[in-house]
Structure formats: C-alpha cells, structure tokens
Design a protein around this nucleic acid. Structure first.
Length: 472
RNA sequence: GCUCCCUUCGUCUAGUGGCCUAGGACGUCGGCCUCUCACGCCGAAAACAGGGGUUCGAGUCCCCUAGGGAGCGCCA
C-alpha cells in the first residue's frame, strides 16, 4: 500500500503551533517514504468556519513551505458523497433517524452526570419507526453493543476500547451537514490514507471511526496519535499562551527553519542531535520514534534555535527577511545601503529578525533623540576633544572602510592616551543614538562618511548646548 | 463522575536489564575574552514521581498509588 498522509485542520480558529507540528509530522512521514501528503480543510461547521481562518492556514503552511501534493480539498464540496454514504448506512440498518430534541438530550446528560455516569446517548430512538411532528431528525450511527475495538497505534502501541463505552454518535446534523467523525472517515477512506497522524485528543474518537469503516466494509487506515503541546502552565496550548497564529511567529522575527527545527524536536529526537536541516528531518524522521508524553512549548529554546539559524545563515538569505521586517516598521530601505553588510554586522547579535531590524534602524533614518542614559553617560564635555579629533581625521580619510576607520579611532585613543572604549562609545551613541551597535569601525563604514560626520556634528552640538544650559 | 493516555534535571530529551557514581541541549549561575551588545570558550548547580514485585542485577519488565493530560456536542 502506498504511503499517504494528510493534515486536516478546521478553519474555526488560528493555525497554531500544535497544528503546525501535526502538519510537519505528516509531511515528513510522507516525504521520508516517498509518499503523498494532502491538505484537507474540514469546514463542515458552517457556524464557525471562516474564510479568514482558511487563509491563515494556507499562508502559514506556505510560509513554512510545507507544500501539499494534493489539495486543498474542502469537505463542503463533498456533500453528495456524504449523503450517498449515509444512504447506504441507513439502508443497512447501521444508521437511524433520531428525533430527540436538544432539550431532551441535555436533560439526559444532566441526569447521567448527576448519577455519576459517563454522559452518553442512550439509544432511545434506535427502534423508533415513526417521525416526530415538528422535529427535523439527525442521523445517528448504530454502534456495536458488544466486543471492543483494538488498534495498533504507531506511537502508543495497542489501544483497546470497549464498545460498551461508545454511544451512537451523530453522523448528519438536522440541517444536512455531516459531522466531523463521519466526514473524516469518508474522506480518509476515499483519499486512501495509509496513516493518520493527528493529536492525542483524537484517541477517543478513533474506535468510533473504526466502527464506521467496518460498517462501510472498508479497512481503516493505521493511526499515530502524537502527544499534545502544552503551554508553560502545563495546560493545553490555548489562546492565552502560544496558541496564536503561526504567522505571529513570522512577525516576531522567527525563521521558518528555526520553527520547524524546534517543532520537530518536540516529541521526537535522534540521539543528541539538536540541529536538523529540513533534508535531515526528512531522512531521519520516523513516526515510531515519537514520544508518548506531552511536551511544553519553550519560547527560549525556539529563540536559541532562531539565533543559531540567523548566525549561520548566508547573509543574502537574510536580506529579504530584514527588508520584510523593516517594511512592517514603516522603514524604507534605500537602495544604496549595503544590505548584506548590515546583515553581516548584525547576524551574531540578533536573536530574531525583528531584533535585527530594530538594530538596523539607524542605518536607514535619523533618530529623534538619544537614548537617555547613554547620552548622559557618554555625551559629556570630556568627550568633545576626542570626538572633534576623530571627526577631523575621518573627514580627511582617503579611503572610507572599516580598516581605515579603525585606524583613526585607535590612533586618536592612543594619541590622547585614552582606552578605546572612551572614544568608541561616545561615537557609537552619536551615530546610532544608543549604547548598542556592531563594532564601531564596521558601523561607521556601513553608515557612510556623510551620515557619520553629520551625526558627530550633531552630537558635538548637543554636548555644547547641554553644557551651556548647565553653565547658564 | 466515567473511559482512554502519559510520568528521566525548571524545559526539550538520550537511555530499550549490567557501558548510568544517568549523557546532551535550552535556560540559570560563576569565570575568561572585550570599544557597546553579542559571539565564542571554560566551569557549576540541576532529574529516573512514590511503593511493591520479577531478576544475580532495574531509569529500563510487571502491579498498585499519586500526579498530569485528553475525551465524554447536531465542535473539529
């Protein structure tokens, strides 16, 4: 049987980290085995599915380059097929109309809960032959009463659930929309899935779905239920912590390769290896090596990986990412800037691309004011002399590059018998506005002579003005 | 409440009966380097949930307890 997997999100909320990891595992498994990976949108909940959510799913997966071989398929386009399957089950007696009202069902559940029983449909409509006036019926599956369902889960091993624990689930709503547990079976069957990789929250649905396959005379796919990802507080990932849209991570400056690397190591490992390129993941990933226990989302480690990938990336690769961030900050990067040079100077001091963009701002536009503490500390009258000297020598330089700039600054420090920091730091504040920047020679080289001299002049004027104000 | 699933440092994990006085990574804490911030380097603290078995020997196998998670919808 050929390998085929799918990722089947429902567009009722954001595509979050947990969903992305499920998609990644399915994608890796298919790629590893040279199989097919399909994307299917489970949009049978008309109430809550939104176009916006669909777009976020598509954009998120595209950003991560988790490309599907088939799809996206939409369940709402397959209603004829579901109706056909329902007709068959009805005819076989494996499904029946249920005329219970929502109120009745609620009362039933309340009573069961009060009696400390597991709330479940009691099958009261199983043998009803007459319709009920004014009630649009749902169609329920007639679950087997006896025996149990056993399946071999690829991550958990054998799982057995007694049919007596299962009730007659709704296959078709009264408004004609199929429910998840039904459409998922029909689709996985029609699309010939070989392995269903999904979250652990679906374990309890699996036996019901297997019963439906059997009633339809089909062999169910194999299953792999991967552990859930928890938030820092140990509870399932939710809106409160990491369950924001994956696109949020893009905005926050994370690289797709870092996010994927982080996610693949959540629940899966290959010895002590921490860094995996996508090709390595494909080569080494095995669903059987996935852990059974839930793991906690740790932004610190993701950040470390992101830093690692930024640090080791080809500068050219990072230029578009930097531009993207700058654009979102409303900063226009003029073309004559040495963008690769800027990236190179910031690579090993940025943990995210957002941070890099922030650190690069002063290369692209003047700042309104100095970092207060830095100015107080470094833009003082004592630095006027070295600053003027540096300014004069820089202005006289034949060649403007990191090497020549370096010589000037070092030379001035030596001539004045000052430590390098006493000269470099005031200039850093003068040109960048704050206390942090790449090495001063690189910074000035990248900034260019005109801007450098201009900002040093401004700083000198600033110091003089402040001194005058204090004296007066 | 019932059913199912899970349990190694704070976190992600290695470990498949002896190689474990439990290894790696993130984070944390010290130190070195240094023009800032970083990078890098060196070092430290830090875990087998508890209790019973099985075995010559248990982190590794079995049972119980505790803790955590999930499911129990005309949501997916």
């Amino acid at each position: 049987m050929s390998v085929k997997t799918r990722f089947a999100p429902s567009p009722t909320g954001y595509l979050h980290i947990g969903g992305v990891r499920t998609a990644l595992f399915n994608w890796l498994y298919a790629r590893h085995h040279g199989g097919t990976y399909v994307l299917r949108i489970e949009d049978t909940d008309q109430e809550r599915s939104t176009e916006e959510a669909i777009q976020v799913i598509l954009d998120g997966l595209a950003w991560l380059q988790l490309d599907a071989d088939e799809g996206p398929f939409f369940q709402t386009h397959r209603y004829d097929r579901y109706r056909e399957a329902i007709a068959r089950l009805l005819e076989q007696g494996d499904a029946y109309h249920c005329y219970c009202t929502r109120e009745e069902l609620e009362a039933m559940r309340a009573a069961q809960l009060a009696a400390k029983q597991k709330p479940r449909y009691d099958g009261r409509c199983r043998n009803r032959t007459e319709p009920r006036e004014g009630v649009e019926p749902v169609i329920r599956f007639r679950n087997p009463d006896e025996g149990s369902v056993v399946f071999e889960d690829h991550v958990r091993g054998r799982i057995r659930i007694a049919n007596s624990e299962l009730d007659d689930l709704v296959l078709m709503r009264s408004d004609g929309h199929p429910t998840y547990n039904f459409s998922v079976v029909i689709d996985d069957m029609d699309m010939a899935m070989s392995l269903v990789i999904r979250g652990e929250d679906h374990i309890n649905n699996t036996p019901r779905q297997i019963n439906i396959y059997r009633a339809l005379g089909a062999e169910p796919p194999e299953y792999a239920h991967v552990p859930l990802i928890m938030g820092p507080d140990g509870a399932r990932l939710s809106k409160r912590h990491g369950a924001v849209s994956v696109l949020h991570y893009r905005q926050a400056g994370f690289l797709p390769e870092a996010l994927l690397n982080y996610l693949v190591r959540l629940g899966w490992s290959h010895g002590d290896q921490e860094i995996f390129s996508v090709d390595e993941m494909i080569e080494l990933f095995d669903i059987g090596d996935v852990n059974k226990s839930a793991s906690t989302f740790d932004i610190e480690k993701l950040t470390w990986l992101n830093q690692h990938y930024i640090k080791n990336a080809d500068p050219e690769r990072l230029v578009p990412e930097l531009l993207w961030q700058l654009e979102h900050m409303g900063v226009t990067a003029d073309a004559e800037r040495d963008l690769e040079g800027i990236v190179r100077s910031l690579q090993e001091r940025s943990t995210t691309m957002l941070e890099m963009a922030q650190g690069a701002q002063f290369f692209f536009h003047d700042f309104d004011s100095y970092h207060e503490k830095a100015a107080k500390q470094h833009l003082r009258p004592v630095v006027l002399e070295p600053m003027r000297k540096v300014r004069a020598e820089l202005a006289a330089l034949d060649e403007w590059n990191a090497g020549s700039v370096h010589e000037v600054i070092n030379g001035v420090a030596n001539a004045l018998e000052l430590k390098l920091g006493k000269v470099a730091q005031p200039i850093r504040v003068a040109v960048s506005g704050g206390p942090v920047s790449p090495p001063i020679d690189q910074t000035l080289a990248l900034l260019g002579r005109d801007k450098t001299l201009e900002r040093i002049d401004s700083a000198i004027a600033f110091i003089e003005a402040r001194a005058a104000a204090q004296a007066g």
